[in-house]
Structure formats: C-alpha cells, structure tokens
C-alpha cells in the first residue's frame, strides 16, 4: 500500500457537494479511489460488504434526510469490522452549531469536524495525518 494515499468514501445528499468532493480529491492526487453515496444507509451496506485492508477516509455530511450523520456514525460503530482502525470518519458540514460539534466529538471513530467547502488543503491534512 502506497503511503500518503487513501480510499475515500463520500456520504453526501447534495449533488454539487459530491461533485466538489470528488473533484477536490482528484485534484489533490491523494485518492486511490473515491466512492460517493447519496444515502448513509447505502454507504453502511457497502462498508460492511467490502472491508478494506488500506486506509479509508470517510467524509459524512451531518444534515441528511433519512439517516443523518450522527445516526450513520452510531451504526458504523456497531458494524462488525476487523479492520476498524483503518477507517477514519470526518464530518463535513455547513453546520456552525457548537452543540453539533460537541456531540460528534463523543464518537471515537470520528477524527474531526470539518467545515465545508472541502479543499485540497483539507485533503492533504487528513491524508498526512493518516500516513504511517
């Protein structure tokens, strides 16, 4: 596994933001792959069935219909994953609510609370953090 690169999973219901995320990851050159889900439940399903053996960075929006970001993280933490440590979740949101921020900190699998828009700088930071 090449260092300084990761597989990305984007969970976002807004199409423009999906486009921005995909393109930004592409521009950063840090992505081995990038899969987009418009619904959190589909992402959970995918993660459960395709357990990774390399670093995975998950960007999840907090405000989404049906399953929101909090619910996603809750369900993710209940998944029976043997390589759980390879997954890093970052919430990516337009929320400026401090309470959201405090609440998401409670989840051990959430490594950061990022504000939109996603930029190459952000990608570089989260991938650097992940590099061995």
């Amino acid at each position: 596994m090449e260092t300084g690169r990761a597989d990305f999973i984007i969970i976002e219901d807004n199409k423009v933001d999906c486009f921005i995320a995909e393109k930004t990851i592409q521009n950063s050159g840090k992505g081995n792959s990038c899969i987009i889900f418009s619904q959190a439940a589909l992402a959970l399903d995918y993660i459960e069935k395709h357990e990774s053996d390399g670093q995975v960075i998950i960007f999840v929006d907090i405000q989404m219909p049906r399953m929101n970001g909090f619910e996603f993280v809750e369900s993710f933490e209940r998944l029976p994953l043997s390589n759980r440590h390879l997954y890093r979740i970052y919430t990516l949101t337009s929320s400026i609510n401090e309470r959201d921020r405090e609440r998401i900190k409670m989840f051990p699998s959430v490594k950061g609370f990022l504000n939109k828009p996603l930029t190459v700088d952000i990608i570089n930071q989260v991938v650097q953090v992940n590099s061995p």
Partner: peptide, 20 residues
C-alpha cells in the same frame, strides 16, 4: 441559517475548484 449556508458553501467549493 443552516439551509442558506449549504448553497453558499457549494458555490465557494466550486470556486475553489475553478481556481485550479
């Protein structure tokens, strides 16, 4: 305030991409 910020941040994201 939440709902209004979404589209604005989308625009800012696209601008960020345009810069490249």
């Amino acid at each position: 305030t939440h709902d209004m910020r979404g589209p604005i941040l989308s625009v800012l994201g696209v601008i960020e991409l345009l810069k490249t």
